[in-house]
């Protein structure tokens, strides 16, 4: 459980996070989305006690991160996979992190095995690809078998195998009842991985919703094809839908779902050749949300 409450972080005169509030529940993968510079990393840094908030709070399991005695057992974090000493061997990198919390070498070997790096445990991290470093960073997050996982841009720069691996891993971690917060600036990735979304822009909350709800909110209606389009259009309008004609003779119906349209047509014996619900892609929904935020800010300045 992560609770961010009215969080503001300023760096000098720059406002990175501006009155942000959201919660992340256990048992789901929550995608933390926003364009570059929206404040995702700053929020995560404050959450992990690295940066002090200007005002507001960010709590993990009801506590400030800095007050947790052995945080590795409660929170696993991957902030920047390239933040490793290139001269250190993979197992040694994990071992020093583990030692701070009293975790032994056996657990280091286990997590290296779990992320598929057991074969390169004695190799220096400097020779690792970005994908291997991401795996190493995730291994570090898993060392204490924590109930909360916070990953900042874990799929950045990964090949398709790596992307799929992260997706399956995070989903299975959430399936075990853990709280998983995953940041990204790519909606297309989150669409496949996350159940819930926290979308921010310019440090402010734009939407805290589920993937399904976001798709519904930006639904573009249902495309209906019928040889008796004119008659069907009148029926649909009298049933409360609004209908627009498409250039190819189809009808774009909003206000009624596909089931209601099909039932109505059947009741009046109007033949229907196709009913296709059209939802905006989540990508479009996300672009529209974040674009709105930019316009809002620009208008505010004027």
């Amino acid at each position: 459980m992560i609770e961010v409450c009215d969080l503001t972080k300023r760096y000098g005169r720059t406002v990175a996070v501006d009155g942000l509030s959201f919660t992340v529940e256990p048992g789901h993968v929550t995608g933390f989305l926003g364009p570059n510079g929206a404040g995702k990393t700053t929020t995560m840094r404050v959450l992990l006690g690295l940066d002090a908030p200007t005002s507001g709070t960010a709590l993990v399991g009801g506590r400030r991160y800095a007050t947790i005695r052995r945080p590795m057992y409660e929170v696993g974090a991957l902030l920047d996979a390239s933040a490793v000493h290139p001269g250190r061997r993979a197992a040694d990198h994990l071992a020093w992190l583990a030692r701070t919390n009293g975790i032994g070498r056996r657990r280091v070997a286990e997590v290296l095995e779990a992320v598929g790096l057991a074969g390169v445990a004695r190799r220096r991290v400097g020779g690792f690809s970005l994908g291997m470093r991401q795996r190493l960073g995730i291994a570090a997050a898993l060392l204490g078998d924590p109930g909360v996982l916070v990953f900042d841009e874990p799929v950045n720069g990964l090949d398709p195998d790596g992307v799929r691996w992260i997706r399956e891993l995070t989903r299975s971690l959430a399936g075990e009842g853990r709280t998983v917060l995953l940041s990204s600036h790519l909606m297309t990735e989150m669409e496949l991985t996350a159940d819930r979304l926290v979308i921010i822009g310019r440090g402010r909350l734009l939407a805290a919703t589920s993937v399904a709800e976001l798709a519904r909110r930006y639904a573009r209606g249902v495309l209906v094809r019928s040889p008796r389009a004119g008659e069907l259009a009148r029926l649909l309008e009298s049933a409360g839908g609004s209908v627009a004609g498409e250039p190819d003779g189809g009808l774009r119906v909003t206000g009624l779902d596909a089931a209601a349209i099909g039932d109505l047509a059947a009741r009046h014996a109007v033949p229907v050749h196709g009913i296709t619900p059209h939802s905006a892609s989540l990508e479009d929904a996300y672009m529209r949300l974040t674009a709105d935020a930019e316009q809002f800010t620009a208008a505010g300045v004027r």
């Binding site: 920047d80 933040a83 490793v84």
Partner: peptide
């Protein structure tokens, strides 16, 4: 400074925030 240069300072302070 090796920790600042590589960024491992943040990993270190995440596992040991005091």
């Amino acid at each position: 400074t090796a920790e600042y240069a590589t960024g491992t300072i943040r990993a270190g302070l995440t596992v040991w925030p005091r």
